[in-house]
Simulated assay, not measured.
Amino acid sequence: MANLLETNTWVEGIYEFALDDWVEGGPDGVDNLPHKQLASRTQYLKSKVEELREDIDEIVANSGDLGTHKSNPVLDHPDYSVTSIKIADGAAIDRVIGNRVIDDTTVATATADQPTGLWSKLGYMIKSITGQANWYVPPTVNLNDIATKYWQSTKTYAVGNIVYSPNLPSNSYAECTVAGTTAETEPTWPAIGSTKVDGTVTWVVRDSRDARKLQTARTLSLTGGVTGSVSFDGSANASMAATVAVLGAIDGSQLTKLTANVLTGVLPAIDGSLVTGIVSSGTGWTKFSDGTLIQRGNVSVTSAVGVTLVFPIQFINTDYQILITDAGSTCYSWGSGGTITAAAIDVFLRNPANGGALITGVGRYFAIGRWK
């Protein structure tokens, strides 16, 4: 007796004998058909079980590598089969990425980079935009604050509010002169100095290069011998009422002039006191409150034709008198002539013992006139 012919296939459905089937044996007989189908299914299931057994044996044999992979800090399979495509979404969690430091001095470029490099470049851009020393320091004015300075649709504005817009003429801004609410679309702005009705708002386009006034008025003050103050906001000229402090008695030695510069201006009346200036040792001047000016000093005639004597300061006119005496023990005659001005006079020296001949020598002078 032969065995049934089996095939390693899964047969869909098992044949059921019909009432009119003839009993027929053999490989192709209908009597053996259901048995052959069941035998084929059995053969198919047996082959699958054997494949599973082989897989289980391989897993058991490699169980050591699986444990190593699970404890390995580097995410990869021993055969390097774990690629970026096979990593599930969300696998790069914070614990895996760890802490990173952003270097905001890394200049941004268009080249590809690792995440830390890209974050550093973004930090550099943030720092550049905010103008702060570091990327994590917030700006003093945020973008929303800046946006409120620009024209906005259907917004209520009060008189004095100003707005900016890239559509305004160059170097200009718009100032609200009639309060109201703007339209839904930005108006077409006119030239500088012109007005524009925008919804119920009226704007005047002004030149931003023209200073209007200080946001906070400042007080300008004078202190010391002259006092006074005035509030100034830059919108108009301002005049200050100044008060000069009353001077008391002044010791002449307190007002000492150490250079040859001339004291200019009109001095206030100083009752019972005088103003003295010392140019150098033995040379100087004294001004009295009644206008009298007395000057003194030395004169040196180095040429027989005479010399021009320049006073420490200038008299008010040439109506002054000068007296010159010898600096030594010899008696000579002094004279004047030639140029006479409020600032200088030509003088000469004669020797009476020699028939009045012109000579050289040194003398002291005393001149009196007026300074006012």
Score class of each variant (00 low, 15 high):
residue 11 V to M: 13
residue 12 E to T: 14
residue 28 D to E: 13
residue 31 D to K: 13
residue 32 N to Y: 14
residue 34 P to M: 04
residue 37 Q to I: 03
residue 39 A to L: 08
residue 40 S to H: 11
residue 45 L to S: 05
residue 52 L to R: 03
residue 52 L to E: 08
residue 56 I to T: 09
residue 63 S to E: 10
residue 70 K to T: 14
residue 70 K to P: 07
residue 74 V to W: 09
residue 76 D to Q: 12
residue 79 D to T: 08
residue 80 Y to T: 00
residue 82 V to Q: 06
residue 87 I to E: 13
residue 99 N to G: 08
residue 102 I to V: 13
residue 103 D to S: 11
residue 109 T to H: 00
residue 112 A to V: 04
residue 115 P to A: 14
residue 117 G to K: 09
residue 124 Y to W: 15
residue 124 Y to R: 06
residue 128 S to Y: 06
residue 139 P to V: 14
residue 140 T to E: 11
residue 143 L to S: 14
residue 151 W to R: 00
residue 158 A to W: 12
residue 162 I to R: 12
residue 164 Y to Q: 10
residue 164 Y to D: 05
residue 165 S to F: 01
residue 166 P to V: 11
residue 168 L to A: 13
residue 173 Y to F: 10
residue 176 C to D: 02
residue 181 T to G: 06
residue 188 T to M: 09
residue 196 K to M: 13
residue 206 R to G: 09
residue 214 L to A: 11
residue 223 T to D: 03
residue 233 D to Y: 11
residue 233 D to K: 13
residue 234 G to V: 14
residue 236 A to I: 08
residue 238 A to H: 02
residue 238 A to G: 04
residue 245 A to W: 07
residue 245 A to F: 05
residue 246 V to H: 01
residue 255 L to V: 10
residue 257 K to P: 01
residue 260 A to Y: 04
residue 262 V to S: 02
residue 263 L to D: 08
residue 266 V to H: 11
residue 270 I to Q: 02
residue 272 G to N: 14
residue 274 L to R: 09
residue 276 T to L: 01
residue 277 G to A: 04
residue 280 S to Q: 15
residue 285 W to T: 03
residue 286 T to L: 02
residue 292 T to A: 05
residue 294 I to K: 01
residue 296 R to N: 06
residue 301 V to T: 14
residue 304 A to G: 06
residue 304 A to N: 12
residue 306 G to N: 12
residue 306 G to P: 10
residue 309 L to N: 04
residue 323 L to C: 12
residue 326 D to I: 00
residue 326 D to W: 06
residue 329 S to F: 11
residue 335 G to N: 11
residue 340 I to S: 00
residue 342 A to Y: 04
residue 345 I to H: 02
residue 348 F to A: 05
residue 348 F to T: 05
residue 352 P to I: 02
residue 352 P to D: 06
residue 356 G to I: 01
residue 359 I to R: 12
residue 362 V to R: 08
